[in-house]
Design a protein around this nucleic acid. Sequence first.
RNA 1: GCGCCCGUAGCUCAGUUGGAUAGAGCGGCUGGCUACGAACCAGUAGGCCGGAGGUUCGAAUCCUUCCGGGCGCACCA
Length: 674
Amino acid sequence: MYRTIQLSLQARIQAILLSRYEIALPYLAVEQPPNIALGELALPVAFELAKRLRKAPRAIATELAAELNADLPAGVALVEVAGAGYLNIRLDRAATVRRIAADHHADLGGPGFRLIEHTSINPNKAAHIGHLRNAILGDTFQRLLRPDAFKSGYQVGVQNYIDNTGVQVADVVVGLVHLQGMNLDRVRELLTECLETNQRIDFYCWDLYARVSQWYTDPGPDPANAAPTLAARKQLRLDTLHALEAGHGETAQIADLIATEVLRRHLETMLRLGIEYDFLPRESEILSLHFWDAARALMTERGVLYEETQGKNKGCLVMRRAGAEAMAEGDTDEDAKVIVRSNGTVTYVGKDIAYHLWKFGLLPGKDFGYIPFFNYPTHPCWISTSGASDPTAPTFGKADAIYNVIDSRQNDPQNQVQEALRAMGFEDAASRYTHFSYAMVAMTPRTAVDLGYVVPEEDLAKPFVEVSGRKGLGVKADDLIDRLITAAKTEVDNRHPELDEPERLAISQQIAIGALRFFMLRFTRNTIIAFDFKEALSFEGETGPYIQYAIVRAANIFRKSGVPADEALTAIAEIEGLEPILSSEEGTSLWETWLAASRLSTVLDQSIQSAEPAYLAKYAFTLAQQFNNFYHRHHVLTETDPTRRALLLATAAAAHRELIRALGYLGIEAPPVM
RNA sequence: GCGCCCGUAGCUCAGUUGGAUAGAGCGGCUGGCUACGAACCAGUAGGCCGGAGGUUCGAAUCCUUCCGGGCGCACCA
């Protein structure tokens, strides 16, 4: 509702500026005055115009106010001039409350297919807290975009890229074969054992991966003569990697078995958080279906890729680096980015360019094969194949816009891919390519110590230490979720002995997921999260459970009053005499609650435009705070005046409705009790 | 050396694209459960917005520079 008024106000003022001063301002700032006593919206437009019109801001504001007041936009009661030249807008409170109650709000959405890539964990070990941040950010953003009951939204596809032929999977294969002495059959047995005894292969690989990484550099008992041994181990690693890339033979089969099974564990872990995917493109198919060949032909044809004939990159196919100055004819660009090595193999960025051409439907003659891989209650998740494609599979490429949820350490390669698209003449695609960048999750030294890691002296004073899969240093996603559930369960058991066990567990899970998702979303994207168990396990203050609790309190009011929330909202349409209450001094806190509740679509729009889910998380918390404040100031059930009681009930219902919606976008459920 | 990010209350962070008196949570201190549930609320203390210049009606926000921190910069993947 807030956004509806904001949009109509902006349009009116733009029209006035055009007719009166012949000025066109494409963007008009609208803000909230510092105090509700000054009005509900404020426009500093007069300051902006002062220099162009060579007139005092206050004089301009006065003229604008007069014109606006002569023909007020719907819902506006009065426009006045304040301070040095602000245009302050006062709304018709009763009319606005009725419109909010009737759920009038500006729609959001548009045409086109948007592809979101997130999670993308190497399938060689258990997911950790850093992966959780990625998946929760991506999943939340997907929810912001998707069509739903509140908005028409955008068509979206969610994909999770699987690097199943990379060096990390190779490392685990080296561990299985050379440290554990396993062959293909033994690996099959291991996987069967894991499933039968409820052990997790991804946890097993977590430890094995750390051991292998250490093994590569461990000089052993005779450091002086270790060099040949270590070189041989490195060679083993390379040979294994090449076997995976080639895609056939026992080594590749072992890798495929392990990667596929670890991937299933990842999907299960993410499903605990309500995170689902539509498609899993795998690197193995990018290789076997020769995506690169098509990309290479296109890049060469468009003059983006060229062979270097001298200097350090002699014999390589290279492209200009993103942001580099243009070179003079005949000069050697020593700084160029190598795409194809002198031995003919393609680099990671090269494969990524091919993949992104496919995403935009720009890779001629190439597509994945698709088969179902994993079943969600409402839809299947598809995976890539080089074999026969299932004819019922939907289309995944040909996106109009893409969002890559990838951490900020990948800034350079991401820029390089965009630069390649731009250089090929796909300006439009490049401009619809969003690197949804975010900073890593680290750990406080205290948490690292709690986990039993030896933290070096010099790191103890630092605010955080880096999570490292290679060192096995990190918090596994499932361990954290389990601990959160246990902590929530203790509380729920205490508070609700009357409920049966499955119900208490279900509520505890909702609270745990609420706490976790909110924790990962409350920080803006480029803030490094220093993970701390004490903080993450907190259910008080600026947390998910705080918001869930506000919803439970509101729901209790409707239950005890016998008036359902939706009836409380419909009732308000018929009731007279709201204005005096809303305009009174004590009614102001009611009005502020309505105003806060009406801002959801504004905040959604902001979150989408800036690709920043933290704005929505912050909003949900602020609205819950506003509701709790209202809850303490006004006692609904003991209110005897029918008009006041109806208004109080509707106020609670409006906050309740928007809190549930906001949490829904954050992927957090509202428990029935807690 | 080059590029990107960050520096705001004791701690952890917001700050709506340059606006009115810089805000939350945690922690500290004072209070509030026989009223819709205290996973809550109210009050209080706590700030040279890293430093210095500049841009203008107006700067935590933009520019320059310095200081301090983080992360990237391979024919590795």
